[in-house]
């Protein structure tokens, strides 16, 4: 059934040693590099730019959980990302919650929304799954356009950052950076732990051969739904964190273009790789940053990257590196 699922970049490594947190040796090394980069970079690069990358990296990891490990292509993840942003912004600004609770609220609402949309969408698979998630996300978009609390076209602006646990003020970008870095690393490790848990094994079994997994006695729909909810929750956390960083939540983050962007990030980095989404997010955010002055050409360039990746570069950056080094990253 290899042609019915998105084929993954690297072949299964022969020796899959379960070391630290289920990382193989190569992955542990790569994780070390990632942590080092997260810790050192704010001393050299603009923290807001780095925080944007981390938010999108977490978002892309959440998306990758579905496409890479369950084989479901969601084209509606902007709904969870954007709604998480709205809820976090609203609870910071109107309810006066502390930032950590506001982000949790974003994740919670993301997961509830994921439960509803996932429950509908897992009834179909493949292309239909993509179309259903896209359509449901569009419905969420129209809801956000009309609902009073989102501020319609204006969005929720001038959201205060508040103080962490009511004690540490986050007004300094540098302080906030460490909070965002913590959220990202925690989310990343959770994602990795889930993928390498018995639950993750069943997810992969569903991806490879769903009828077989069913015949082994697994309720595959339950597993798909759980993966969907988890992915939506992490997306909500990512969106909430982004709203906290920029102090704004707008319709851009719920729009279908955002769903497309997260697909692009994951594709560029490598579908189904552990580190691919992070690299992909860094590449795309950096690109948007440098090309912002070219206006509408950014869309064209993103489209070209999409086409190029699909036609010639399906493993993505990390998948290619892994293939070249013969390790699973």
């Amino acid at each position: 059934m290899a042609d019915t699922t998105i084929s993954l970049g690297t072949p299964e490594a022969v020796h899959e040693e379960a070391g630290f947190l289920g990382f193989t040796r190569a992955q542990a090394l790569a994780f070390g590099v990632l942590v080092a980069f997260v810790v050192i970079s704010p001393f050299f690069l603009y923290p807001v730019f780095l925080m944007k990358i981390l938010c999108f990296a977490l978002f892309a990891c959440a998306f990758n959980l579905l496409i890479g490990y369950v084989g479901l292509l969601s084209f509606g993840h902007a709904a969870f990302f954007g709604m998480g942003g709205y809820i976090t912004a609203h609870s910071l600004k109107v309810w006066g919650l502390t930032p950590e609770l506001a982000i949790l609220a974003g994740g919670l609402v993301g997961s509830v929304l994921g439960l509803g949309i996932g429950w509908l969408a897992i009834r179909r698979s493949g292309i239909y799954f993509a179309m259903i998630t896209l359509a449901m996300a569009q419905m969420v978009y129209f809801f956000c356009l009309q609902a009073p609390f989102t501020g319609g076209e204006d969005g929720i602006q001038q959201v205060p950052r508040g103080s962490l646990f009511g004690m540490v003020s986050l007004d300094s970008d540098f302080t906030l950076y460490w909070v965002v870095a913590f959220v990202f690393l925690a989310g990343f490790l959770l994602f990795h732990r889930v993928v390498h848990s018995p639950f993750g094994q069943v997810m992969k079994a569903v991806r490879e051969n769903e009828p077989r997994a069913t015949s082994l006695g697994y309720r595959t729909d339950d597993y798909k739904l759980m993966a969907f909810v988890l992915s939506a929750a992490l997306s909500g956390v990512a969106g909430g964190t982004k709203a906290l960083v920029f102090g704004i939540a707008t319709l851009t983050d719920v729009n279908w273009t955002m769903s497309g962007e997260v697909v692009l990030m994951t594709l560029v980095g490598g579908l189904g790789t552990v580190f691919g989404p992070v690299v992909g997010a860094a590449v795309i955010v950096t690109m948007q940053n440098y090309l912002a002055e070219f206006g509408a050409w950014v869309t064209v360039i993103q489209g070209v990257i999409f086409v190029a990746c699909v036609l010639a570069f399906r493993r993505g950056v990390v998948g290619e590196i892994g293939n070249w080094l013969k390790v699973k990253l």
Binding site: D3, T4, T5, I6, S7, L73, F75, G126, I127, A130, G260, V263, L267, Q302, G303, V304, I305, F306, V307, C309, V310, L311, R314
Partner: peptide, 12 residues
């Protein structure tokens, strides 16, 4: 290839 690649290509 998987049909989803066609979707991704035409999206691009």
């Amino acid at each position: 290839l998987d049909h989803l690649y066609g979707l991704l290509l035409t999206f691009g």
